[in-house]
Design a protein around this nucleic acid. Structure first.
Lengths: 151, 151
DNA sequence: TGAATTTAGTCTCACATGAGAGTATCTTAC
DNA sequence: GTAAGATACTCTCATGTGAGACTAAATTCA
C-alpha cells in the first residue's frame, strides 16, 4: 500500500478516519444492548467488564486500562457504588486509591451481558473465517503497540 | 475464533471495546497535527477532507459520509464559512441544502495537511508489510459493510 | 392545485466530558 | 525526620455534543 505523500488523501484508507467511523458505529450499536436493558452508560459498562475480567483494581488502573478520563471514571464509579454493583475496599498500600471489585449483583449483571456480547460479536464477524479474524486481531494489536510506543 | 458464549468475555478480543480504544488513540494522536498548527476541530477537519476528496456536497451528505450529527456539522460549517475555508453555493435542486465546497484557501490548507497525514500513517503502519495492511483494510471494510446492513 | 407529509438545516436545552484546582496521601531527597 | 514534590481522586467550570423543537422548502397524494 504505497501512499502518495504529495497531494491526495484517500479517507477510506486513512486509519484515524475510517477506524473512528467503524468503531463509533460498533460501539453505538452494541451499547444499545446494555444501555436500555441494564441502564448502564458506556463508561459504567467498561468498568464492569474490566473488573470482571481482571479482578480488583483501582480507579487509576481502570483509567489506564480503558483509556478513560479520571473524571469520567470517578463519576461512573460513584454511581456503580450507589447501585451496589461494585465494592470499594480500603487499599492497605495506598489510602488514596481504594480497591474496586464487582459485588455479587455486579457479577450477576455481567453474567447476563456476556452471552449477549458474544452473540453480538459472533454476528458481526460471521462474514469472516477464523484465519481472517485472527489476522485482523493480530494486526490490530500491532497497531495498538505502535501507538503506545509514542506515548 | 470460537467464542465461549457462556461466561467469559475477553475484552482484548471484543471489537466494540478494543477498536474504540485504538481508534480513540489514533484520532487523538493524529489530531494533534492539525489542531494546533491549523486551528481545526475534528469535525472541521473531517468536513475539509471530505470536500477535498469528493467535491461539492450538502451538509446532509457530509453527515452521512462522516457519521456526524447534523448539529455538529451545522456548527462546523458555520465556522468554516466564517473563516472562508469553504464556500456555500445555492443549490438549484433544493434551496434548503446549499452546496458546499472548498475555497482556494481551504484547498491550500488541505494541501498542507495531506502530506503530514500520509507521513503520519506511514509511520503508524511501518511495522506491517503491504500484504498485511491490505488484508487489514479489506477485513475492516467487510466489518463496515456488516454494520451498515443492520442500519 | 392545494393539503399533508417529509426533509435540510438552525437553534435551544440538557447532559457528558475533560481541563484544572483542590485535598489527602504517598514518595523522594537531604 | 521533614520539606518538597508527585500522585489518586473529587469537584467545579467551560465546552462540545446530540435530542428535539422549529422554520423553510420540497415532495407526495388526492
Amino acid at each position: 500500500m504505497k501512499t502518495d505523500n504529495k497531494t491526495t488523501l484517500d479517507l477510506k484508507q486513512f486509519l484515524p478516519y475510517s477506524l473512528t467511523n467503524i468503531a463509533m458505529q460498533m460501539s453505538e450499536q452494541f451499547s444499545e444492548l446494555y444501555q436500555q436493558q441494564f441502564d448502564l452508560t458506556v463508561p459504567q459498562w467498561r468498568i464492569i467488564a474490566n473488573l470482571a475480567q481482571y479482578g480488583e483494581r483501582t480507579a487509576k488502573e481502570l483509567c489506564d486500562m480503558a483509556q478513560m478520563d479520571k473524571s469520567t471514571v470517578s463519576r461512573a464509579v460513584k454511581s456503580l457504588l450507589a447501585r451496589n454493583l461494585i465494592i470499594a475496599k480500603e487499599n492497605p498500600k495506598d489510602k488514596r486509591a481504594s480497591l474496586l471489585s464487582l459485588s455479587v449483583e455486579g457479577n450477576r449483571l455481567h453474567e447476563q451481558i456476556v452471552p449477549l456480547a458474544n452473540e453480538w460479536q459472533a454476528g458481526l464477524v460471521s462474514d469472516l473465517d477464523s484465519r481472517e479474524l485472527n489476522q485482523f486481531m493480530n494486526t490490530l494489536s500491532k497497531l495498538s503497540n505502535h501507538l503506545n510506543k509514542n506515548v
